[in-house]
Design a protein around this nucleic acid. Structure first.
Lengths: 141, 141
DNA sequence: GCGGTAATCTACAGCGACTGTAGAGACAGG
DNA sequence: CCTGTCTCTACAGTCGCTGTAGATTACCGC
């Protein structure tokens, strides 16, 4: 049985994040000491490690919730797990494509600017006139 | 002079987003009709187009604010503009590197799983045991 | 000028996934 | 028993919007 800070250190998680996971029902409510402090066991450690690792791979918390649920029914087919992982891969690939387009446009923009004064700056010109731009999607890929 | 909805359509922005930009001081407070509705001119259109296009390239609003300020001093050197653009390029490249690592790991994970039952699922195993994973950074690249 | 309906108004809550803060109380080592 | 570190709750803030509710205004045909 260890305190929340220990669990945090062992999983590379912030204490507040663990409490947040509890609050949204991703981590179970742990036992408490007489004084009201949380005490965790190894099952909690495993679960949190699973969550953190999945987060590192970019899975959203909802997907992680599904994965945790599935992982509790060992007899079922793992097709659903596969589907979630593939969905995440598609997400990552879509972001990659988007970011590659951004990189290309940024490089072009920066490469073209040989001006000294802002009045002639090609970068600002590209930002002003969408027509000079090659990229054309929404932001935050 | 046109209404907010017209400005929204012409720039591909939502009406609320325009009001939000005004609220955070990125767009100036426009003139109003007697009844209190906002009316915009071409300068507003240009400014909003600049903002939207910069957002499409992934610039954060703070950077856009700087770019807009710089763009108002045409005599100055465009070195700062260049620096902001390069910073953004580095951001994009960092995210790309991160996402490429994720893609690799996800592909490996998915490719390895030939199990039928969840109990044997390689994907879940990788998620449980960090040691089996190659990626090792923080999430949300 | 009037009526209907579409657009706009303000104010605020919610998203995702945390992070940070304040002020109070608990625990462990010496 | 004291001291210093940890933990507690509750809530605000991050980023960049997006959605909602309920009231008001503008515009268009008649």
């Amino acid at each position: 049985m260890y305190a929340i800070g220990t669990l945090a250190k062992r999983t590379g998680t912030k204490v507040q994040t663990i409490r947040y996971y509890e609050q949204i029902g991703l981590m179970p409510e742990p036992g408490r000491t007489g004084g009201g402090q949380r005490r965790y066991g190894d099952a909690d450690l495993d679960r949190l490690a699973f969550i953190r690792h999945s987060r590192q791979l970019g899975f959203p918390l909802d997907a992680i919730r599904e994965l945790l649920d599935l992982s509790d029914s060992p007899g079922r087919s793992c097709g659903e797990v596969d589907a979630i992982a593939r969905r995440q891969l598609r997400e990552v690939e879509a972001r990659l494509a988007r970011l590659e387009a951004l990189r290309k446009e940024l490089r072009r923009m920066i490469g073209e600017c040989r001006a000294d004064r802002i009045a002639d700056c090609r970068i600002l010109r590209v930002l002003r006139d969408h027509g000079e731009c090659l990229a054309d999607h929404d932001a935050e890929a």
